[in-house]
C-alpha cells in the first residue's frame, strides 16, 4: 500500500514537471500585458486573446502556419510511401545488394543531422532549391527515411510470409500485394510514421533556418525567433506563438493515440 502511494507521488511529481511549462505558457499567452508583473504561475485574471490575434496577423503566423502545414503534411504522406515501399522490398523481396542497402540505412540512422548540415546546404543550393518548400521537404525525407524504413521493416517482419505467398499464388504482382494485402494491415505503422514525421517536420528549426531565409517561406519554429531579440523578449507573443504551434500536434496525438502506441510497440512484441 505504501509502495503504491510512493509510486503515485513520484508519478504525480513527474506529471507536474512535464505539464508545468505548457500550463505556464498557456497562462502567459492569455494574460494582458499589465498582469505580466505577477508571478508566472498566477492564472490570468482578465483573460485576453489579443496576443494570439497580434501574432497571427502582425507576427506573420498565418503565413508561417500555412508553410509549416504544407511542408509537414507532404513530408508525412511522402514518407509513408517511400519508407513502406523500401521496407516491403527489404522484407518480402530477395534482390542483389539487399545487405548493402540495409547497411546504408543503418548508417543513415547513426549520422546526426548537425554533422552533415553544411554539405546538405550545399547540395540543396546546387539544385537551386534554397528558399523553396521542395528543398526542405527533400532534405527532411532524406534525413528521416532510415528511421521509418526500420520501423516499417520491423512491422512487416511480423506479417506472416504465408500471406505474401498466398497473394503470389492468387496472381498478385508485388505492387498489388503491397497495396492490397500488406498496407491495409499496417495501419499502426502508417499512423505512427505520419505522426512522427509530421511532428519532426513541424518542430524542426535547424533545416528551416538554414534552407529558407526569406520571410515569406518561414515556418512557425523560425517565426518564433522573431519574438526574441538579443536584449528584449516578447514573452506574450512567444507564448501565444508556442501555443499556436503546439495545438495541431496535441490534437493529432489525441486523435491517433491508440494507433500510435500500437505502432510503436508492434515491432517489439512480434
Amino acid at each position: 500500500m505504501l509502495g503504491r502511494w510512493i509510486l503515485l507521488f513520484i508519478l504525480g511529481i513527474t506529471a507536474a514537471l512535464m505539464a508545468a511549462p505548457l500550463i505556464l505558457t498557456v497562462f502567459t499567452s492569455l494574460k494582458p500585458t499589465t498582469e505580466l508583473v505577477n508571478p508566472a504561475w498566477y492564472p490570468p485574471i482578465d483573460m485576453t486573446f489579443e496576443h494570439y490575434v497580434r501574432v497571427w496577423t502582425e507576427g506573420g503566423f498565418s503565413r508561417y502556419f500555412f508553410n509549416t502545414l504544407v511542408i509537414s503534411v507532404i513530408d508525412a504522406i511522402v514518407m509513408i510511401f517511400i519508407a513502406s515501399m523500401a521496407a516491403y522490398a527489404m522484407v518480402f523481396i530477395d534482390f542483389r545488394g539487399k545487405i548493402f542497402l540495409q547497411i546504408l540505412f543503418l548508417i543513415g540512422l547513426m549520422i546526426p543531422v548537425t554533422a552533415i548540415v553544411l554539405p546538405l546546404f550545399q547540395i540543396v543550393r546546387s539544385f537551386g532549391l534554397l528558399n523553396t518548400h521542395l528543398g526542405v521537404i527533400l532534405a527532411d525525407l532524406a534525413l528521416a527515411v532510415s528511421v521509418f524504413v526500420f520501423m516499417f521493416t520491423s512491422y512487416f517482419a511480423g506479417v506472416p510470409k504465408a500471406l505474401h505467398e498466398a497473394a503470389r499464388i492468387d496472381g498478385a504482382t508485388e505492387f498489388q500485394i503491397y497495396r492490397r494485402v500488406v498496407m491495409p494491415i499496417a495501419t499502426p505503422a502508417v499512423v505512427t510514421t505520419a505522426l512522427l514525421e509530421f511532428l519532426w517536420s513541424w518542430n524542426d528549426l535547424l533545416l528551416r533556418l538554414l534552407l529558407m531565409t526569406r520571410d515569406e517561406m518561414r515556418t512557425l519554429s523560425v517565426g518564433l525567433l522573431n519574438f526574441q531579440g538579443t536584449m528584449t523578449r516578447d514573452v506574450t507573443g512567444l507564448s501565444s506563438g508556442t501555443v499556436i504551434m503546439a495545438i495541431p500536434v496535441v490534437l493529432l496525438f489525441l486523435f491517433f493515440q491508440r494507433h500510435f502506441v500500437r505502432g510503436m510497440t508492434s515491432g517489439a512484441v512480434k
Binding site: 504465408a162 492468387d170 498489388q176 494485402v181
Partner: peptide
C-alpha cells in the same frame, strides 16, 4: 495452381467473400 496453406493465410482485412474472390478480382 492453387494452394491451401497450413496457417490458412487469409487476408485479415478482407471479408470471406473478398478473400475467396481476390484472385478473380486481380
Amino acid at each position: 495452381i492453387a494452394m491451401v496453406f497450413q496457417s490458412y493465410a487469409l487476408y485479415p482485412q478482407m471479408t470471406v467473400a473478398e478473400n475467396m474472390g481476390f484472385s478473380l478480382s486481380l
